[in-house]
Design a protein around this nucleic acid. Structure first.
Length: 588
RNA sequence: GGGGGCGUAGUGUAGCGGUUUAACAUGCCGGCCUGUCAAGCCGGAGAUCGCGGGUUCAAAUCCCGUCGCUCCCGCCA
């Protein structure tokens, strides 16, 4: 080994020890007669001192060293003088007096600072990802990710789960996201698909009798990116046999309640996780992934305002729409410009406009205030709980638009008014999802979760009677406004499964071609089973106080799904395409 | 597929029609310096203002296009 100790591990009890260290030059302070080198390795930082008493070649090497040079230091750990202790560093009580400094490798001046986390253009960070990964922020995040995954593995192992790998080269499935396809060299014109998740395979493992399975599984979806979506991402995929919904929920709740204090002791997790139905979530928060760290719930004002002389309200109510509002505490003094910004946010979600009522001393201000009666203004305040100094934001439209726009406004106020404690990790279960939704473009029914989800009720006739009313045994885990896990109890009855396929409009032959292997498997004694798949990237992102999963992935893609470091995707030699029986079509 | 934001020395920013020889900080190079900790002081080098076109007597600055990064909508069972 090039080293006997880790830089960041040295403590007062090591004083007097001879150590050999190796790492990168973090910072260098050259006083002519004495040179301080801050040496960095994965464990942290320690100060190395090269003084006039050090050997001549040691002084020369220290003088030549520059940022990010790789060096080896032999020296003695010594206590720093009392007035020179650095209380900000774990190693700040000691320093290493160098007897020898060897330059193991030189380094070009890096394109951005390694020694702090100052902001750098994203493209540059990604091009030099290996340098960005040296910086404290990403190193902290990557290590947190490691600790999280190890904790989860241990938690599941100790509960009798088996870690089982499933193939990445699998089969394209209809519905859902676009697949990444892999051409077959051996079979011209045929393609594998990279799995969007190991959904089918883990269910087959239940049929196979493994009872409790998990996997840290890479998933692939060829869709446009977001801050919380990358083309490839990682799930803690798990599945259990002979369980009901609450068995899965309780397991996850138990494990996460232990995980968060273990890997992020400063975080607080409210227990138990609140459970609300999909309908309740939409009603109260306007979204199926509410941020439960703060209130500001949506209040239904339809009964209060439906007979108003203000046509926007009465007409909306008459046509079956909703009038709902939220209260922004202390925002009655918002300027015209700020109100316009709020209005734009509502409009982006489809609202025609935003009605604001500012409850100031003795008067209610706002563009629509003059159209409302004294009674209506008072009733609105009573129903919403608004008091003097508050701003009530009201949207009247169809239920979907009302929910989306007020939810967006709620999150806007969260950020502007600083309404959440960043160290609270607020989980919540969203249950009782609808089983089907209508795809109007393609004139067919689609599964909200996926077609293997157990519906209630079960028969085709019952489902057909009112598809929108059919609920499923699916569940989402939300956390601080992000969807963090999704799962369901699965169909294990081939009859129900084929009824669902009929609902989704698959011809018998089509269903056989696509899911025949599943249907047949279920006919050989499939146990009742269900599972869930927490997103590792999103979970670690939240624990790392990040808002983009790029920050917890070692080598992520840009928002255009490219890799700026390796320059992928890239063209390939014609010969390689020929081997795969692929020709590139001209763009029209 | 659509919309918003950003792009100026290595890096982070300022300048947003003419007082600019494009400024500031930091980094880099050199010098001084034996106790600093993002060391300090002195000196120096470093920018075809993303790229292309247009408007104008004059463009980093205005317009159009394009490329890159980013956020959002659609999309994401």
């Amino acid at each position: 080994m090039f080293k006997t100790h880790s830089c960041g591990a040295l403590r007062p009890q090591d004083v007097g020890k001879s150590v050999t260290l190796a790492g990168w030059v973090h910072l260098r302070r050259d006083f002519g007669g004495v040179i301080f080198i801050v040496l960095r390795d994965r464990s942290g930082l320690v100060q190395v001192v090269v003084s006039g008493e050090s050997p001549e070649e040691t002084q020369t090497a220290a003088a030549q060293a520059r940022s990010e040079f790789v060096i080896q230091v032999e020296g003695t750990v010594r206590q720093r003088p009392d007035n020179q202790v650095n209380p900000d560093w774990p190693t700040g009580d000691v320093e290493v007096e160098a007897h020898a400094v060897r330059i193991l490798n030189t380094a070009k001046t890096p394109p951005f600072y390694i020694y702090d986390d100052s902001p750098v253009d994203e493209a540059l960070r990604l091009k030099y990802r290996y340098l960005d990964l040296r910086r404290a922020r990403l190193q902290r995040n990557i290590i947190l990710r490691h600790e999280t995954v190890q904790f989860l593995r241990q938690a599941l192992n100790s509960r009798g789960f088996l870690e089982i790998e499933t193939p990445y080269l699998f089969k394209s499935t209809p519905e859902g996201a676009r697949d990444y396809l892999v051409p077959s060299r051996i079979h011209p014109g045929r393609f594998y698909a990279l799995p969007q998740s190991p959904q089918q395979l883990k269910q087959l493992l239940m049929v196979a009798g493994y009872e409790k399975y998990y996997q840290i599984a890479r998933c692939f979806r060829d869709e446009d990116l977001r801050g919380d979506r990358q083309p490839e991402f990682t799930q803690l995929d798990l599945e259990m046999s002979f369980v009901h919904r609450d068995d899965v929920l309780d397991l996850i709740e138990e494990i996460f309640a232990e995980l968060i204090p273990a890997v992020t002791p400063q975080k607080h997790v409210p227990l138990p996780f609140p459970r609300l139905s999909y309908a309740e979530a939409l009603e109260m928060y306007g979204t199926d992934k509410p941020d439960l760290r703060f209130g500001m719930q949506l209040v239904d004002l339809t009964p209060v305002l439906e007979r108003s002389n203000f046509r926007v309200f009465s007409a909306t109510a008459a046509s079956g729409g909703k009038i709902k509002g939220i209260v922004a505490p202390g925002c009655a003094d918002y300027t015209r410009r700020e109100i316009d910004e709020l209005t734009d946010i509502a409009k982006r979600e489809g609202a025609r406009g935003l009605v604001t009522l500012a409850y100031t001393a003795g008067a209610v201000k706002g563009s629509a205030a003059k159209f409302l009666t004294e009674d209506e203004l008072t009733a609105t305040a009573e129903t919403t709980g608004a008091s003097e100094g508050d701003l009530v934001c009201i949207v009247a439209s169809d239920a979907k638009v009302v929910a989306a726009s007020l939810s967006a406004l709620r999150l806007t106020f969260r950020d502007r008014l600083d309404l959440v404690d960043p160290d609270v990790v607020a989980f919540g279960w969203v249950l009782d999802f609808p089983m089907f939704e209508r795809n109007e473009e393609e004139q067919r029914w689609e599964a909200v979760h996926h077609p293997f989800t157990m519906p209630r009720p079960n028969t085709y006739d019952e489902m057909m009677a009112d598809p929108l009313a059919v609920l499923s045994d699916a569940y989402d885990l939300v956390c601080n406004g992000w969807e963090i896990a999704s799962g369901s109890i699965r169909v294990h009855d081939p009859k129900i499964q084929s009824d669902i396929f009929r609902m989704l409009g698959y011809e018998e032959a089509d269903a056989q071609a696509r899911f025949g292997h599943m249907m047949e498997a279920f006919s050989y004694g499939a146990p009742p089973h269900g599972g869930i798949a927490p997103g590792i990237d999103r979970l670690v992102m939240i624990l790392a106080d990040e808002t983009n999963i790029r920050e917890v992935i070692a080598f992520p893609k840009t928002s255009q799904a490219t890799d700026l470091m390796a320059d992928a995707p890239a063209e390939v030699p014609a010969e390689q395409l020929k081997e795969l029986h692929i020709s590139i079509a001209e763009e029209s």
